[in-house]
Amino acid sequence: MSEDVLFQLKNVSKNFVKGKEKISIFDDLNMTIDRGDFVAIMGPSGSGKTTLLNMLGGVDQPSGGEVWFDGTRIDSLSEGALTRWRAENIGFIFQFYNLMPMLNAQRNVELPLMLTKLSKAQRRKNVETALALVGLSDRAKHMSSEMSGGQQQRVAIARAIVSDPKLILCDEPTGDLDRATADEILEMLQLLNRDHGKTIVMVTHDPAAAKYAKRTLHLDKGQFVQREIVA
């Protein structure tokens, strides 16, 4: 494995058992993601994009094959070890933001830091930096119900980057936003990738969104189809 490789899927298969039926989503999927990459994953609905992203994030387990991250095989980790691994390495951005409605922006962003040993002052400093990066310093005390979808997603981005994870995983991050707001969010992701060296994997339906990525993988019928375009 080269020094630059962050993520690697080897012969990964995934199937769900529904009653007596066995639904195979992937069968022998292989994929490599380098450090500093920005990958968009596209494909028809039901093709397994979310399932793939969940396996990368250690939220779902493959049925077969191996998932390697930075030299560690994560598909065989215990649930507790996987949880700690997520806390250290992964930032998630969800389609519906998934902010805690009872917390203000600042507290939402602080959540991943509650899992670290940082002091309160240190946490506050990191939260301020992250909120400044997404341009929401003036909204620190706002509740999510007082913010637009775009603002909520920016809070979510701040939450995803505040603990400085190696990898950011986004599932349809702009799926719920209008074009202009979506572009703002995508520019922000691009900036994180280009200027802050974050590796990003983003699932999207939207070809315009995919253009912000360095490359796009098309998932169909359990395989990446050869329409890979390198930017």
Partner: peptide, 14 residues
């Protein structure tokens, strides 16, 4: 449910 799952995704323990 969604809040619990989100926190778990962020790395909060079960």
């Amino acid at each position: 449910a969604k809040e619990i799952a989100t926190l778990r995704a962020l790395g909060f323990s079960n």
